[in-house]
Amino acid sequence: MIVSGEGLTKSYGGNIVVNHVTIRCGPGTITGLLGTNGAGKSTLFKMLLGLVKPDQGRVIIESTRKKPLSGIIEKPCLYGYLNAAENLKIFASIQKTPYSRENINHLLKKVGLPTDRKDPVKNFSMGMKQRLGIAIALINDPEALVLDEPFSGLDPIGVNSLRTLILQMAREEKMAVLIASHNVEELSKFCDFLYVIKDGEIVRSDTAKTLITQYTDQYLLVGENLNFSGPLERFNPVLIGNGAEIRCNPNEITKVLNQLVANGGTIISCVPKINMNRLFQYSQL
């Protein structure tokens, strides 16, 4: 384990924002923290990054590197009046890291940013700012990365390319990546492990695959000539445009799809929908 938070608690003005949360992330894994707005995700990440002192609990970082942990909280905060290279220069100099032109270009290329752009970053799109924020986080080769809502404000292409970058960092560079989001679809696509936080407490934690399997009870099917007659009627199909929403468990979906194909239909996509109410229900851990 590279980074873990044990029994972390924080309150503001009598209001408990994070309540005895334990969270862990190992090298080469992508761990998701799923929660609604105000669930305590950002406060938890701030404690992990040392920005905020926990009232109780401790943060354990197992690393010998100068900078074991880095990240972005809420949004990438950059010096808007400086360009991308200058921002990297400033943050690198603060950490006493050599910041030759080569090093800077290497980082920019790594996150997919142009190396020849000279205008100030206030002109950048949200996606580019996120990338630059990650580039800054990657200065000094941290072993773990903490990203708070990294997909927020990004278009689908931006989300896709950022996801690819994160996967690359985890798989190829064996970084421990901790991502917070309120979007289960985003997290479910690439996280290895998932924590679900509600009102400052962890209500669920398991591998992403297990949680998705356990709490999926609906599917959105898109296709042509979808015929839900006969035995498929019990799945209560609701027709929506070119598709239909059906109530179905993960262990039954394969049969349903096969039946639809047998009925002469063409399946274009099948998207599981997690039951959020059940997912966020309190349970014994």
Binding site: S70, G71, E74, C77, L78, A137
Partner: peptide
């Protein structure tokens, strides 16, 4: 205001 203080203190400073 710009949040750059957060960006600084996630570094070892």
């Amino acid at each position: 205001k710009d949040g750059t203080l957060r960006s600084i203190f996630v570094q070892p400073v």
